[in-house]
Amino acid sequence: MSFEFTKEELEYIEELSQRYPSPKALMLPLLWIIQNRLKHIPTEAFKAVADITKTSEAQVYGVVTFYTMFTLKPTAKYHIQLCKTLSCNLCGSKELLNLLKERFNLLPNQQNGDFQLTLVECLGSCGTAPVVQINNRLYENLTPAKLQKILEDFS
């Protein structure tokens, strides 16, 4: 299996590259393009990214595995990203985690049917902690009851 950027994507990348001083800065935008299209970043795509950013596959691998929003395997239909950082922790993210464990049988880094749970670092919304991001949408000021309702609405 090989990976190639489509013609439209390459045009967009060309446009993006004007914004940055070095091609290395294109790393995250490129990974976003792949993640959005395929719902994961296949290892075959590393070379395409490394070629454009003038880095190596090992470096791309490092970036992909560093950020929780990039995944090496396709994500489930609903990717639940639960914040584990301080503010959310103090405001009750542990209770949300317990709910996911007991009620939906979801453990961190595991898939269960349409759901997948990942514990992530700060989502940048400490004022409305605890927060959960499901796919691209942020759910704020959550309580276990609210989260349960949201997930039950999905299924």
């Binding site: 290892t43 590393f46 190596s56 090992a58 470096q59 791309v60 691998y61 490092g62 560093f66």
Partner: peptide, 22 residues
């Protein structure tokens, strides 16, 4: 200047690795 190794994963789980299957 061949950049064959990189640091992968994060925090306590970080390790050194080559690119996958290489």
């Amino acid at each position: 200047k061949t950049n064959e190794l990189g640091v992968i994963k994060r925090a306590n789980h970080s390790t050194i690795s080559t690119a996958p299957n290489q």
